[in-house]
Design a binder for these strands. Structure first.
Lengths: 182, 182
DNA sequence: AGATAAGCGGAGTGACGACTTCGAATATAT
DNA sequence: ATATATTCGAAGTCGTCACTCCGCTTATCT
């Protein structure tokens, strides 16, 4: 692969991440313009718009997974779990826009993105069980509903454009529900 | 207004509610086809697609508000609050699709829909304070974050396509966080 | 029943966006 | 330095969708 081609690919990805993160309905032209390349170049690297969206989404998911794995190394599982939860919710706005764009564009997520999602959930699951073993999270809360809470909090915060204080108060309520019953 | 016109208007509204509730990206033709009328008829009753979406959304919001007002009359405020919460979350899928279609189509919601949203939130706020007075919900939880929870739970349940059991387990976690600390 | 005004359907129209084509430009290999 | 194969960008093409125009139909009033 030629050096300039690789450069362009990278520039397109970051531009797409930016553009779609802000408005899911953005056009391919918008991406090309921000990346400083022609439209054809975008389509040469990503055969379809859906493919581009998938690539961007996959990257995001992998970054979140890495963050989870990093925190899993911590020797204080309780705080690690809650910190991860909070972080994902705070950064949700742009990620969600991209996921939304994908479903809007071409129905289901492709294999690549689905695999990335799986990896992310596994890492999160690891954080959860560690926090439970440490007694920071009630033992009878299972992965599906806790994950649903994560998604819900993220989407809620994004949709309602919550200011940070309200978001933190909402998270505090959720965390109280997750803590062991006294 | 002629009788057949009123009939058609009603048929168009229910068709739109149905169609947009299932897929926010649906076209006006789809609505006309389901309603059994021509496209022009749709546009005669609703000058723009946005207007149609707003009408449908407003209707939904008003129905929810009415449900809240109805439950506010109950003499058992705790259960009334939680029942309302659960019900809104269960029915969220279609409502959200419509709200999404609106924002996707024409930016912000118009005056009519915003007014309906305000009314709905007021009714919900009434349920909340009543439940707090009855000691069923912790007193230090305020409207903004509780409302954020409602939105989040709804969006989460919809986005993740939760099966009813997981959804109920998630709600149980949320409700535990809302109950007074022991 | 007959007049008439309101309502109706379906074939346009114009804009927009995903994707393609093709001649010009540029990186690498000798 | 020159050849050549790859990449580039701008101007298309094609399909879709919101919205309009106009001749026909039908409810309502006398």
């Amino acid at each position: 692969m030629r050096a300039d081609a690789r450069d362009n690919r990278a520039r397109i990805m970051t531009a797409a991440d930016d553009v779609f993160g802000q408005s899911p309905g953005a056009s391919t032209d918008d991406v090309a313009r921000l990346a400083g390349v022609g439209i054809a170049t975008v389509f040469r690297h990503f055969a379809t718009k859906t493919e581009l969206l998938e690539a961007v989404l996959t990257l995001r998911l992998e970054r979140i997974r890495d963050r989870a794995l990093e925190l899993a190394g911590s020797d204080d599982p309780g705080p690690a779990f809650f910190e991860f939860f909070t972080q994902v919710v705070s950064e949700s706005a742009s990620k969600l826009a991209i996921a939304e764009a994908l479903t809007a564009a071409g129905a289901a997520a492709g294999e690549e993105a689905r695999e990335a999602g799986r990896g992310m959930r596994e890492a999160f699951s690891g954080l959860l069980t560690a926090a439970q073993k440490a007694g920071a999270v009630r033992a009878d809360a299972e992965m599906p509903e806790v994950y649903a809470l994560l998604i819900g909090a993220s989407r809620g915060a994004t949709a309602a454009k919550l200011d940070p204080e309200t978001r933190d108060r909402m998270l505090a309520l959720i965390y109280d529900g997750l803590k062991p019953r006294r």
